[in-house]
Design a protein around this nucleic acid. Structure first.
Length: 650
RNA sequence: GCUGCCGUAGCUCAGUGGUAGAGCACACCCUUGGUAAGGGUGAGGUCGGAAGUUCAAUCCUUCUCGGCAGCACCA
């Protein structure tokens, strides 16, 4: 048989030669470094015989694919360790994930932190035992029977659910075996010792909350100790950038239990919030949007019409439309409420109401209606997460009412606007997902074809990399999602644009076409930041609290060194204040070192230090946050520099 | 909502079956000091809440509320 290597070289081997043997035929050192092979782009075990002509790539331990094998093997070793230490525990699945792996177990007792230590120790023993991984092909029914006989109900279920055509492979390491597609390295020793069990958590069997909850053990695994250490250090560093921690330290906001999931914005935090809102307002104005404001509370009948009452009610805050009683001991309401109001969870239905006032012509379209809409959603307790997942949020929401032939153009314009905004905030890594038609959906296939195509054309035109999220669109239309990541790499959806053919129909929005007949407009639901709360959270983490100067709560602190310099410092402060800068003066009788430390900790971008010398010469000693040196400028230059630098990017 | 862990001063955290401690922050005083913590004194806690066990509970038990991690959810 002919084996073709990545560099195009071809060599002849006897049928049934293994990857290992091929590696050995090239060089001893290669054979030693290799852990698997890719045969026609499928990963195979090193010891598996190759039966015909193939494209072959030898995977070394240091390759990216090698790292995945380390993690995959580690998951198996974890499972073996757990079953040895805790007999009766059932194994389920254990995939490789970013930075590591996990394995889900079914066991009545949860694992404690001490258990984790024991398990980890056992894993090291298994590695040292250098057990070979052996691949075996089993008969499907035999396999099911086997796993049932040893009480592994979950494994048996997994096998029964595999397609009939699938080859059932079992991997054995020592006396332990597991259902697995493979491949694995040659033996357990190869994974090395650069792994660590991180945490225990609950997880539903097959990701469905109706199913039993399993116990998941997360681990991280790397090629060597150095990589492991680097990863653990990175996690520690990331913790310091947690927006919840920085929010407290920088006096930006707080939460308290009487208003779970709703932000108390402090003066400094609210400056960031306002700067962001004003920035977006300028962008929207220039992009042809009109801003509106709609009611917070609306009658339940209204939400019935929009479809939210049936589809979204469990996430809504509902208020009885009854005058409450003031009797101290009596019930809150004297009469049974007959009518209900609901606090808006979304702005779209209200925007349709504005659209519907008066008659719209095709000439009026597109209408781009924006609102910094304050929405409430009754999110599950476990879902709440600092600013990232709140119950009260403000969306930079807008709805574009347009004709079908305007969808592409509008979507392209949106993608470009979004990209430009994200660049202004310093984001380069945006994950874009195109969520396509779900199984249950409204509208016919033709419409969906056009809608999906419009979105795809738009991301392509905007030159964004994207991935397809099959079947994850809304029931009323496909959507684009724009994701950003937080300090520890969790991904959060921020921007979005969603095509909607359903709501205009439900709420009877129309326009008069060129032909004089009534037509349905299409609605594009779109948000650039998503919610101001989440976006600020991400922004804080990405900048580690050092906000760009135009958003910085305090842009400059004037710090006199002695009382002698105070009058000069006050003049300078007044100057900056009158130029509209957010400036403070620190005239306390503290040493300059102390003041510099304090304002540096609070991440103030500039400290203007003035002493006797500066007062006499009419200069300013400028200290930049994080900088080591001071920069002496004339008073006017210093002020002008700050004015220039503090300008918003748009 | 589910599983696990956690809850002591504003913050970070010690601690004990006999009603509490440190550092920072805070207040006052001294210090006027040239680029990341000058010194002194002082104030501050129903040990998340409720019930139980006990002569006695911050500590043990149960419930409850909240936080954290993961899962589920996320228009």
């Amino acid at each position: 048989m002919t084996i073709t290597f990545p560099d195009g070289n071809k060599r002849e081997y006897a049928r049934g030669t293994t990857g290992m043997e091929i590696a050995e035929s090239i060089s001893k050192s290669l054979a030693k470094a290799s852990v698997a092979v890719s045969v026609n782009d499928n990963l195979w075990d090193l010891k598996r015989p190759i039966e015909g002509d193939a494209q072959l790539n030898i995977i070394k331990r240091d390759d990216e694919a090698g790292l995945e094998l380390i993690r995959h093997d580690a998951a198996h070793i974890l499972a073996e360790a757990v079953q040895e230490l805790f007999p009766g525990t059932q194994v389920t699945i254990g995939p490789v994930i970013e930075n590591g792996f996990y394995y889900d177990f079914a066991r009545d007792e949860p694992f404690s932190t001490e258990d984790l230590e024991k398990i980890e120790k056992k894993m090291h023993d298994i590695v040292d035992a250098a057990q070979n991984f052996e691949r075996e092909v089993w008969d499907r029914n035999e396999a099911i029977k086997h796993f049932k006989s040893i009480g592994e109900e979950y494994k048996a279920e997994l096998i029964s659910d595999l397609p009939e055509t699938e080859t059932i492979t079992i991997y054995r390491q020592g006396d332990w075996l597991d259902l697995c597609r493979g491949p694995h390295m040659v033996n357990t020793k190869q994974i090395g010792h650069a792994f660590k069990l991180m945490k225990v958590a609950g997880a539903y069997w097959r990701g469905n909350s109706d199913n039993a909850m399993l116990t998941r053990i997360y681990g991280t695994a790397w090629r060597n100790e150095k990589e492991l250490e680097a990863y653990l250090t990175m996690l520690e560093e990331a913790e310091k950038r947690d927006h919840r921690k920085l929010g407290r330290e920088l006096e930006l906001f707080h939460f308290q239990e009487e208003a779970q999931g709703s932000v108390f914005w402090h003066p400094k935090g609210h400056i960031i919030y306002n700067q962001m809102e004003q920035y977006i307002r300028r962008r929207l104005r220039d992009a042809g949007y009109q801003e509106v404001k709609t009611p917070q509370l609306m009658n339940a009948k209204f939400w019935e019409a929009s479809g939210h009452w049936s589809k979204f009610r469990e996430n809504m805050f509902v208020v009885p439309d009854v005058v409450p009683s003031t009797d101290e001991d009596g019930p809150v309401f004297k009469e049974e409420p007959k009518e209900f109001m609901a606090i808006k969870p979304m702005n779209c239905p209200a925007h349709v109401q504005i659209y519907k006032q008066g008659i719209k012509s095709y000439r009026d379209l597109p209408i781009r209606m924006a609102e910094f809409g304050c929405c409430h959603r009754n999110e599950a307790h476990g879902a709440l997460h600092g600013l990232m997942r709140v119950r009260q949020m403000t969306q930079d929401d807008a709805h574009i009412f347009c004709r079908e032939d305007q969808i592409t153009e509008e979507t392209i314009a949106f993608c470009q606007l979004l990209q430009s905004v994200y660049t202004d905030f310093g984001f380069e890594k945006i994950k874009v997902k195109l969520a396509t038609r779900p199984e249950t959906r409204a509208g016919n296939n033709d419409t969906w074809d056009r809608a999906e195509e419009a979105l795809e054309t738009a991301v392509k035109t905007a030159e964004l990399d994207y991935e397809i999220a099959e079947g994850e669109g809304a029931f009323y239309g496909p959507k684009l999602e724009f994701h950003l990541t937080d300090a520890i790499g969790r991904s959060w959806q921020c921007g979005t644009i969603q095509l909607d053919f359903v709501m205009p129909e439900r709420l009877d929005a129309t326009y008069i076409g060129e032909d004089g007949d009534k037509h349905r407009p299409v609605m594009l639901h779109r948000a650039i930041l998503g919610s101001l709360e989440r976006f600020i959270g991400i922004l804080i983490e990405n900048h580690a609290g050092r906000m760009p100067i135009w958003m910085s709560p305090v842009q400059c602190v004037v710090a006199p060194i002695t009382d002698e310099a105070k009058p000069y410092a006050e003049e300078l402060y007044k100057d900056l204040w009158e130029k509209g800068l957010r400036v403070e003066i620190d005239a306390r009788s503290e040493k300059i070192n102390f003041k510099i430390r304090e304002h540096s900790v609070l991440k103030v971008p500039y400290i203007f230090v003035v002493g006797k010398r500066e007062a006499e010469e009419g200069t300013v000693a400028i200290r930049t946050l994080g900088g080591k040196n001071q920069d002496i400028k004339s008073r006017n230059d210093a002020v002008q520099m700050l004015v220039d630098e503090a300008k918003a990017p748009y």
